[in-house]
Simulated assay, not measured.
Amino acid sequence: MTALTAHFDVPIGPDSPGTSRQAVVDILRVWGYIDDLWVADAAVVVSELVTNAVQHGAGSVTLGIEAYGLHVIISVADGSSVIPRRREPDGRGGRGLLLVEAFTQHWTVEDHQGGKRVRAELQPYPRLEDLHTQAGTGREHP
Protein backbone atom coordinates (compact mmCIF):
# COMPACT_ATOMS: atom_id res chain seq x y z
CA MET A 1 0.00 0.00 0.00
CA THR A 2 1.39 3.40 -0.90
CA ALA A 3 1.81 6.26 1.51
CA LEU A 4 -0.89 8.90 1.67
CA THR A 5 -0.06 12.38 2.96
CA ALA A 6 -1.80 15.67 3.58
CA HIS A 7 -0.41 18.89 5.05
CA PHE A 8 -2.16 22.19 5.66
CA ASP A 9 -1.89 25.43 7.59
CA VAL A 10 -4.21 25.85 10.55
CA PRO A 11 -5.93 29.23 10.92
CA ILE A 12 -5.18 30.42 14.47
CA GLY A 13 -8.20 31.10 16.65
CA PRO A 14 -10.67 29.56 19.06
CA ASP A 15 -12.06 27.29 16.32
CA SER A 16 -8.65 25.87 15.36
CA PRO A 17 -8.97 22.54 17.21
CA GLY A 18 -12.50 21.83 15.96
CA THR A 19 -11.77 22.84 12.39
CA SER A 20 -8.59 20.75 12.35
CA ARG A 21 -10.34 17.78 13.89
CA GLN A 22 -13.10 17.83 11.26
CA ALA A 23 -10.61 18.20 8.41
CA VAL A 24 -8.57 15.21 9.59
CA VAL A 25 -11.67 13.07 10.15
CA ASP A 26 -12.85 13.86 6.61
CA ILE A 27 -9.44 13.04 5.11
CA LEU A 28 -9.13 9.78 7.02
CA ARG A 29 -12.60 8.66 5.92
CA VAL A 30 -11.85 9.43 2.26
CA TRP A 31 -8.69 7.36 2.59
CA GLY A 32 -10.73 4.39 3.85
CA TYR A 33 -10.22 4.73 7.61
CA ILE A 34 -13.88 4.31 8.51
CA ASP A 35 -13.82 2.57 11.91
CA ASP A 36 -15.78 5.05 14.05
CA LEU A 37 -14.00 4.37 17.35
CA TRP A 38 -10.53 4.55 15.82
CA VAL A 39 -11.39 7.77 13.94
CA ALA A 40 -12.78 9.28 17.18
CA ASP A 41 -9.47 8.51 18.92
CA ALA A 42 -7.58 10.15 16.05
CA ALA A 43 -9.82 13.22 16.41
CA VAL A 44 -8.93 13.52 20.10
CA VAL A 45 -5.21 13.42 19.28
CA VAL A 46 -5.63 16.14 16.62
CA SER A 47 -7.63 18.35 19.01
CA GLU A 48 -5.07 18.05 21.78
CA LEU A 49 -2.01 18.66 19.58
CA VAL A 50 -3.58 21.65 17.83
CA THR A 51 -4.82 23.09 21.13
CA ASN A 52 -1.31 22.85 22.59
CA ALA A 53 0.23 24.47 19.51
CA VAL A 54 -2.29 27.34 19.52
CA GLN A 55 -2.11 27.96 23.29
CA HIS A 56 1.59 27.38 23.95
CA GLY A 57 3.29 27.60 20.57
CA ALA A 58 4.24 30.58 18.48
CA GLY A 59 3.78 31.67 14.90
CA SER A 60 1.91 29.59 12.38
CA VAL A 61 0.63 26.06 12.95
CA THR A 62 0.87 23.33 10.33
CA LEU A 63 -0.92 19.99 10.57
CA GLY A 64 0.15 16.85 8.74
CA ILE A 65 -1.26 13.37 8.24
CA GLU A 66 0.78 10.44 6.96
CA ALA A 67 -0.84 7.06 6.36
CA TYR A 68 1.09 3.86 5.68
CA GLY A 69 -1.51 1.10 5.65
CA LEU A 70 -2.47 0.36 9.24
CA HIS A 71 -0.15 3.08 10.57
CA VAL A 72 -1.10 6.75 10.68
CA ILE A 73 0.99 9.62 12.02
CA ILE A 74 -0.47 12.98 12.98
CA SER A 75 1.99 15.88 13.21
CA VAL A 76 1.57 19.47 14.35
CA ALA A 77 4.31 22.06 13.91
CA ASP A 78 4.56 25.55 15.38
CA GLY A 79 7.19 28.25 15.72
CA SER A 80 8.08 27.68 19.37
CA SER A 81 11.08 25.55 20.30
CA VAL A 82 9.68 24.87 23.79
CA ILE A 83 9.23 21.12 24.21
CA PRO A 84 5.79 20.08 25.51
CA ARG A 85 5.89 18.32 28.85
CA ARG A 86 3.28 16.32 30.67
CA ARG A 87 2.10 18.00 33.87
CA GLU A 88 -0.31 17.28 36.67
CA PRO A 89 -3.88 18.03 35.58
CA ASP A 90 -5.55 20.97 37.28
CA GLY A 91 -8.46 23.32 36.65
CA ARG A 92 -6.61 25.00 33.76
CA GLY A 93 -5.63 21.85 31.87
CA GLY A 94 -2.82 19.33 31.88
CA ARG A 95 -4.75 16.44 30.38
CA GLY A 96 -3.79 16.92 26.73
CA LEU A 97 -0.59 14.90 26.61
CA LEU A 98 -2.16 12.22 28.81
CA LEU A 99 -4.86 11.82 26.16
CA VAL A 100 -2.29 11.82 23.37
CA GLU A 101 -0.39 9.05 25.17
CA ALA A 102 -3.59 7.05 25.67
CA PHE A 103 -4.53 7.05 21.96
CA THR A 104 -1.09 6.66 20.36
CA GLN A 105 1.68 4.10 20.21
CA HIS A 106 4.15 6.89 20.92
CA TRP A 107 4.80 10.56 20.29
CA THR A 108 8.00 12.49 19.69
CA VAL A 109 9.15 16.07 19.27
CA GLU A 110 11.62 17.18 16.62
CA ASP A 111 13.18 20.47 15.55
CA HIS A 112 11.30 22.04 12.68
CA GLN A 113 12.20 25.30 10.93
CA GLY A 114 13.24 27.11 14.12
CA GLY A 115 10.32 25.68 16.08
CA LYS A 116 9.14 22.15 16.76
CA ARG A 117 6.97 19.43 15.31
CA VAL A 118 5.11 16.96 17.51
CA ARG A 119 4.59 13.61 15.76
CA ALA A 120 2.13 11.12 17.19
CA GLU A 121 1.75 7.62 15.77
CA LEU A 122 -1.81 6.45 16.33
CA GLN A 123 -2.67 2.95 17.47
CA PRO A 124 -2.70 0.66 14.40
CA TYR A 125 -5.89 0.78 12.38
CA PRO A 126 -7.93 -2.33 13.31
CA ARG A 127 -9.45 -3.30 9.93
CA LEU A 128 -7.08 -3.91 7.04
CA GLU A 129 -10.02 -4.93 4.80
CA ASP A 130 -11.27 -1.30 4.81
CA LEU A 131 -7.99 -0.14 3.34
CA HIS A 132 -7.78 -2.90 0.71
CA THR A 133 -11.24 -1.95 -0.50
CA GLN A 134 -10.04 1.61 -0.97
CA ALA A 135 -6.60 0.91 -2.44
CA GLY A 136 -6.24 1.29 -6.14
CA THR A 137 -9.92 1.82 -6.92
CA GLY A 138 -9.92 5.58 -7.21
CA ARG A 139 -13.28 5.53 -5.43
CA GLU A 140 -14.26 6.91 -2.07
CA HIS A 141 -16.12 4.95 0.57
CA PRO A 142 -19.77 5.98 0.84
Rank of each mutant, 00 (worst) to 15 (best):
M1N: 13
L131F: 08
P14H: 03
P124I: 08
L98P: 00
N52C: 11
P84A: 13
V24L: 04
T137H: 14
A42H: 06
V46H: 06
H132A: 11
L37S: 11
Q105H: 09
H7V: 14
E101P: 00
I12N: 11
W38A: 07
W107Y: 14
A6R: 13
Q134L: 11
R127Q: 03
V25D: 01
Y125G: 01
G57Y: 05
G57V: 07
A58W: 01
A58Y: 05
P126C: 05
T108D: 13
I74T: 12
G93W: 08
A43E: 01
G94T: 02
V44Q: 11
S60F: 00
T5I: 08
V54A: 05
L37C: 04
T133L: 15
R139M: 13
P124D: 06
L49M: 11
V54W: 05
A40C: 05
T104D: 05
T104S: 15
T137E: 03
D90Y: 07
T51A: 10
T2W: 09
E129M: 07
L37P: 03
E140S: 15
F103L: 00
Y68R: 15
E140W: 12
H56S: 02
L128S: 02
G69I: 14
R21F: 00
T133A: 15
G57I: 06
A120L: 05
P126G: 05
V118L: 10
P14R: 05
Y33V: 07
L99A: 14
H56Q: 04
S80R: 02
L28Q: 12
G59N: 04
H7I: 12
G69F: 10
D35L: 01
A58S: 15
G79F: 06
T133Q: 15
L4Y: 09
R87I: 13
I65E: 03
I27S: 02
V25E: 07
R21C: 08
T104N: 04
